[in-house]
Amino acid sequence: MSTLIVRTRRSFATHWYAWAMVLPVVVVLAVLVGYPLGRGIYLSFTDANEANIGRTIGDFTVPATYQYVGLDNYWHILSGREGSFYPRLTWTIAWTASCVVLHYTIGLALALLLNRKLRGRSVYRVLLILPWAVPAFVAAFAWKLMYNTNNGVFNALLGKIGVAPVDWLGDPFVQKLSVIAVNTWLGVPFMMVAILGGLQSIPRELYEAAEMDGASPWQRFWNVTLPGLRPVSSTIVLLGTIWTFNMFPIIFLVIGQAGGTESEILVTYAYRLAFQGVRDYAGSASYGIVILSLLLVFSVFYRGMLKRQEAAK
């Protein structure tokens, strides 16, 4: 322990300027991330709710009366006694997998198209990036208007060809397809831009050598393009999975209360626990820690799988 302290002091004395530059970032992260995370972990071991959390009203302070309950909240969630965790987890995984697969495949196709010599390529790039520039809540409300059963654009187009209106946000199955479509529209530009950068970093000599060896376009794609994109793909798929798993605004703003709770993902249900009804802060915090744990396990497993694949080559 004393050796560690000596090394830390020596490092600070030698690199004090670097420490000074990093300190504001550390303070901001501690305030914006560290404290809320620590508070959430603490509340997850209690029975805190709106009635016993404690508050200050003017000059009058109501003391907190919630108690420590240990792992009861986690047992309540993971044991299935609640009855809603595993169905929501299944839908959250299906939602995440569907969106990430669509993000990557469509983004890859568009990136391959834009990587070719194409007239007006710059214009196409700007138009395809626009969905990414639109704030998520603006896009959610715009799509919700287009999904409107009576006055929406989609049902108006269906009426033109004699098809009956579709209840886009009322039927549980259709509303799930609807939010996947919205999130795909929002997420494809990021994948496209990242993959396009990866494509442009692949040496042209590899394609020329493969072509000289008689490789077909599919063989060049499979043996040159995809391996060359592996470093970029592994990162964006991981980021896309984490972002989509926690994609609160699309589910909450597009569906709202139209379809009950069947289309809620874990993060929207955690929000509802904390800010609607009885306001179960402890239950919401427990859901948040469970979500964090699931993503940490997935990230570790995913990175380990990639390392094993690299070591096997």
Rank of each mutant, 00 (worst) to 15 (best):
V237N: 05
F190I: 00
A215N: 05
S178L: 08
A215L: 03
W218P: 01
G240K: 11
G197S: 08
R220V: 06
Y207S: 11
S216E: 06
Y207M: 03
Q257I: 03
Q200T: 02
N183C: 06
I250K: 00
I236G: 04
A181Q: 01
G228Q: 06
T184E: 00
A215T: 08
V182N: 02
N183A: 12
W243S: 07
L239E: 01
V254N: 01
I255N: 07
I236V: 13
V188K: 04
T184L: 03
S201E: 08
G259S: 15
N223W: 13
A209K: 02
A209F: 05
E205K: 12
V193K: 01
G214L: 06
V224M: 10
E211G: 13
I251N: 05
V232T: 15
N223H: 14
R220Q: 14
L196A: 12
L229R: 15
A209S: 15
F248P: 09
P227L: 02
F221G: 07
S178Y: 02
V182H: 03
P227K: 06
P217R: 01
Q219C: 01
A181C: 10
V237A: 02
G228N: 10
E208K: 02
P249C: 09
L186R: 13
A194L: 14
S233W: 10
V254W: 01
P227C: 02
G214K: 11
L199I: 12
K176A: 11
R220S: 14
L196G: 13
L206C: 04
L199Q: 11
Q175S: 15
M191V: 01
V254T: 05
P231T: 03
V179E: 00
L186W: 08
L186G: 11
A258H: 11
D213Q: 05
I250Y: 06
F248H: 02
S263E: 02
F252V: 00
L229S: 12
I242M: 14
W185L: 05
V193A: 14
M247N: 15
T225W: 06
A258P: 02
T261V: 11
V188R: 03
M192E: 10
Q219F: 06
A181W: 07
L177R: 00
Q200N: 11
A181S: 15
L226Q: 03
Q175P: 04
G260F: 13
G240L: 04
G198L: 12
Q219K: 12
Q257H: 12
L196W: 11
A258R: 13
I255M: 09
I195F: 10
S178E: 01
N246A: 09
I251Y: 02
I242N: 06
L206S: 07
R220P: 09
P227W: 04
A210T: 04
P189V: 08
L239V: 09
W222D: 04
E262P: 05
G187L: 08
I180S: 00
T235I: 13
T241L: 09
L253M: 14
F190C: 08
S201P: 01
S233E: 11
W218Q: 04
L253P: 00
M192Y: 01
Q200A: 04
E205Y: 13
S234F: 06
T235D: 10
T244L: 10
L239Q: 02
N223V: 06
I195T: 14
P227Q: 08
R230P: 00
G214P: 01
A215F: 03
T261I: 05
G228M: 06
R230H: 13
